[in-house]
Design a protein around this nucleic acid. Structure first.
Lengths: 239, 239, 239, 239
DNA sequence: CATGAATGAGCATTCATTCAT
DNA sequence: TATGAATGAATGCTCATTCAT
């Protein structure tokens, strides 16, 4: 049961990169990481927001700096002043995203009651799908392409966290509090079912039609998933 | 005396539409689609295979004809001889895919027993995720981008099929054979959980690690999902 | 906790229109056309001059951006920075040209004396053929191809002007000041005979030979045309 | 007064080129010019007709072999079997054309009466503009581009013919039968005014409008031109 | 003869990135 | 900081021409 090294990743997100010619990018002489000014942080955020919008919709290669610059309301050279490489923007976005992505699972508390904990986890994931679909799609896009840019984080930070939580679930199973099953695949199924509502949003809405495809779809989904996982995991006495 | 025997009225001035013609493109006189020869069908298949490989990995805009041509083992102009438009390749791929995609659900038989039917459906979907991950990713890619190229098929063909099968599930619920729940979201959850093993394959394998992430992962997944949906849907007497 | 402070409703999926922007292309938000800087106007002029040279010689399809760029002394992408579309360059050229083209006829004054007015008109047209042969050829090229890009201007602006001037000529005829004839074909014949010296310049010079094909040919032409339109070929007794 | 060498050109038109691999084209070993079979001549004519159609509309570079092949109703490789080079088709067309072009002037008879002869010439030219506008446009196109492919024929055959006929005109002038003027520019003006109705057909019809722009326009033109060359614009008392 | 297949060179246009101010 | 200008390297697609049958 490895300790949650993920915290590091979480911290790393808000820690700025050193300053080369522009405020960001590889330092030329590996010198002092000059701290960002307030205005720099603001611009960075604006750019990252815009990039999220565009990348999540078109993928890395499909997105153009022009589009991002336009959404960000600045000129292309100015944007490149802050992020000299397109890839850099993407990397920052993904890195920052991963922390957000792990948070809900991290909150699942070994000391809590299993069902409320799991139900909360599902809720939180579903809320993220509802409130941050672009982040979800960005992440999915990256996964689809084999996660070339974040495979290491996946293999280390994410794996460690899942290992830890799988152990928690396993303990609950041992204690007879939830049905004995595969904890990893359980986690996968929670991810899959919740993220589906962000990643496959068009499909979901098309299939549900104008009536049931409105905002209510998330409530319906929540109810459905709760039932699925609840009764599916309820331990029953062997006959 | 004049070399031209054909008078032309002197008024035939029009802006023309240049019309070469490969075996697939619009035929010369927009008439008979001329049946494809064996070699043409073979090349078409080779190209579509290559395109599937590349599109599923990089998305539509991220993929280049050069890449596809290289994978297909032919020159770029030669590829374009068979498919004059990049979009056309993609369209063909997606269209063909959608049919394959709908098949497993179509096979779910209203006359069969609910649990075996549902279990078979899940199995089939999982087998598709295992055997045709590229198709799954291609589809996911398209969904992520809002399905601009197949939204109509989604809204019509897919929706109709799901409506039909949702009715079947509903009937089973009415008869008390499976737990009463939302049939649409039930279908979504089957899609999500099975496709996850194709679309998020990197993540799944990274998290499971070298040991459990091998081919056995699909068997584990099958077992897990069966249990999840089985007990989750088992009708139980209200206390 | 989430790095993104802006919720996005999760429904904003659209197929986008990539929008870079040179100084001439559609402005970013399709709003203010932003006045051109001095350097931009200069470059525009250089490009249009070069394009005139190339288009008038090879026609629209025969001309390549590479050629134009080379004549303009700049790189192809740089040229496209100012005129994002080949067609746009051509359109600008033709539009600008048409105005120049109409000017001489516009100046023909209903209040003036018929013969001096007509003679001046012929002179002015002939001077244009001499001084702006490329413009004349560009125009001829467009006509030969059925004027696909300016047919509307021809049918409206040009027609209106000719109608107006034909009425003037007609009035002069009614008053017995010039011979009664077809005013439209009269105008056509002035156009044809003058523009001929620009459009068929090679032929004219080849036929006249090195001696008479020099610059004097325009003076000769002027004298000849003056007599033609004044008296035709009927021999007149020496005064 | 050089003799009409133009006959040579006229003969050369129907004389076929030697046979390389296909029936036409540069001979590989400069061997025997194998005579064309009937079917070969037929195909050649079909191709040249089609090429005339396409070249006259789009110019040399704007025209594609695909278009020509389609109009000719044969496959592109088959067309290239008869004319291995695009340029070759064009060259043959232009060469053949020039003879047709010269014919009307050749017919102007020194022994005839001046005015009837000139009037006939104008008529014939106008009929050519009406009946063979594509030929006229092809010729004009070539001229506009500086006649790169036929400059020699222009400088020799055409010039000789014009010199000869100019001498005829000059003689008539000397004899006081027609007004003394520049015979070369006289010929130019006949060319210009008549060919105008083919080359600038769109403009002519647009300006004349639907009513007077119909087939009658050629009759009107004939009447007008006759008067122009006869009397010019000087008003004459009604008889 | 005729045609399906293949390709090198070219062409308009896009795009990430750099330069100069 | 910010931006107008510039460009090399693609990228989708066209086209004359060749090859093989």
């Amino acid at each position: 049961m490895p300790p949650t090294k993920v915290k590091n990743a979480g911290t790393a997100i808000t820690t700025p990169a050193p300053a080369p010619a522009g405020p960001t990018g590889q330092p030329r002489t590996a010198g002092k990481p000059r701290p960002l000014t307030r205005i720099q942080r603001e611009k960075h955020d604006i750019i990252l927001q815009a990039a999220l919008e565009v990348f999540s919709l078109h993928g890395f290669r499909g997105a153009t700096i022009d589009q991002i610059a336009e959404v960000a309301g600045m000129s292309k050279p100015n944007l490149l002043y802050y992020f000299p490489r397109k890839e850099e923007i993407h990397r920052r976005l993904i890195t920052r995203l991963l922390a957000t992505w792990l948070a809900p699972l991290q909150e699942m508390d070994a000391a809590g009651d299993p069902f409320p904990e799991i139900r909360s986890y599902i809720r939180r994931k579903l809320e993220m799908a509802r409130d941050f679909p672009r982040e979800s799609r960005l992440f999915a896009n990256e996964m689809l392409q084999g996660a070339p840019r974040i495979i290491e984080m996946i293999e280390v930070d994410l794996k460690n966290l899942v290992d830890e939580k799988a152990a928690v679930l396993l303990a609950w199973m041992e204690q007879g509090k939830i049905a004995r099953t595969d904890p990893y695949h359980l986690i996968f199924s929670i991810w899959a079912t919740t993220q589906h509502y962000a990643d496959f949003d068009v499909q979901v809405r098309a299939v549900l039609g104008p009536g049931r495809g409105g905002e209510g779809r998330f409530e319906d989904a929540a109810r459905y998933l709760e039932q699925l996982f609840l009764f599916g995991l309820t331990p029953r006495p062997r006959p």
